[in-house]
């Protein structure tokens, strides 16, 4: 057998299973696009799904509700990512310093990461309950608040609360990644800076920051796309309430599809959300391959 055909067969053996499974992502994606252009209402009972062009997109686009949800999703994503990146950076810098007991902190970081999302949701729902929650009992005992705070059932605090829960769940991952990047910086650079009499802040901005920027940037993109697709935590803690104050686009897609069975509308909203991820994925891709 010729050598090139042989290598071709070998490559196929390795790649084909993966390619097949990736197709199982691609096929539903195509189906989602088709659905977003059709009158796909499972409750209407008709089996035929007429092509309606951009009707679903127009319906979504003209709904004031959609834009409100988009704004909430935007706020949620920005603050959540900000919190994760900032806390991640602080904890990573803390763990990179020399002191006893940092091994314990490093180990503790796996707790939020490993805890199943649904468990986190139930735990915080109970912990923060306005009547029975231990959090309020503590605040009251310390006389920090006059009466129990309805963390989850008051419209103006529910969003910050779910953001904080998401930050708690996900910042350890950022911290561990940034820590690994910090530890990759050659010690000689700092030694040389010490010889030159550099101040700590100078060292941070002249060595630490430029040396870890690429990991930091990639984490930023990954956290943005990851936060846009967060669903479980918010849905299980607030269900989008109170008064739709935490109704992220993802939550509405879920309700539109699986409570009201308007799959066409839901797909249109889904495709819009996906375009956002697609743009971010593209930025990441360009960054990753910029020097090749």
């Amino acid at each position: 057998m010729k050598k090139t055909t042989r290598r071709g067969i070998e490559a196929t053996l390795f790649i084909l299973p993966l390619l097949t499974l990736v197709l199982f992502v691609a096929i539903p994606l195509v189906q989602a696009v088709i659905m977003s252009f059709s009158d796909y209402d499972m409750l209407s009972g008709s089996r035929e799904h007429a092509f309606v062009g951009l009707d679903n997109y127009q319906t979504v686009w003209e709904k004031a509700r959609f834009w409100k949800m988009a704004a909430i999703t935007g706020w949620y994503t920005l603050w959540s990512v900000f919190g994760k990146m900032l806390l991640g950076l602080i904890v990573a810098l803390l763990l990179n310093a020399k002191f006893r007991g940092k091994g314990i902190l490093r180990s503790l970081l796996v707790i939020p990461w490993a805890m199943p999302g649904i468990v986190v949701a139930f735990l915080f729902t109970l912990f923060l309950d306005s009547e029975y929650g231990v959090m309020n009992a503590l605040l009251l005992a310390l006389k920090l608040v006059p009466e129990g705070v309805p963390f989850i059932s008051r419209a103006d605090i529910a969003l910050p609360v779910v953001i904080l829960i998401g930050v708690w769940k996900n910042f350890p991952f950022v911290a561990l990644m940034l820590l690994a990047a910090l530890q990759n910086i050659p010690k000689e650079l700092y030694e040389a800076a010490d010889v030159d009499g550099a101040k700590p802040l100078q060292k941070f901005f002249r060595i630490t920051w430029p040396m870890t920027f690429s990991v930091w940037f990639i984490m930023l993109i990954l956290q943005l796309v990851g936060t846009i697709k967060e669903f479980d935590l918010v849905y299980l803690v607030t269900g989008g309430g109170p008064a739709l104050a935490t109704n992220l686009v993802g939550l509405d897609i879920y309700d539109q599809s699986f409570r009201f069975f308007k799959l066409g509308i839901a797909s249109a909203e889904g495709i819009l959300l996906m375009l956002l991820s697609l743009i971010l994925a593209f930025i990441y891709y360009r960054y990753e391959f910029r020097k090749r």
Binding site: P28, L222, V225, K229, G250
Partner: peptide
């Protein structure tokens, strides 16, 4: 990175 809910709707319908 795509939102899983976008995958779930067609997956469910298929």
């Amino acid at each position: 990175v795509m939102p899983w809910i976008v995958l779930l709707i067609p997956y469910y319908s298929i």
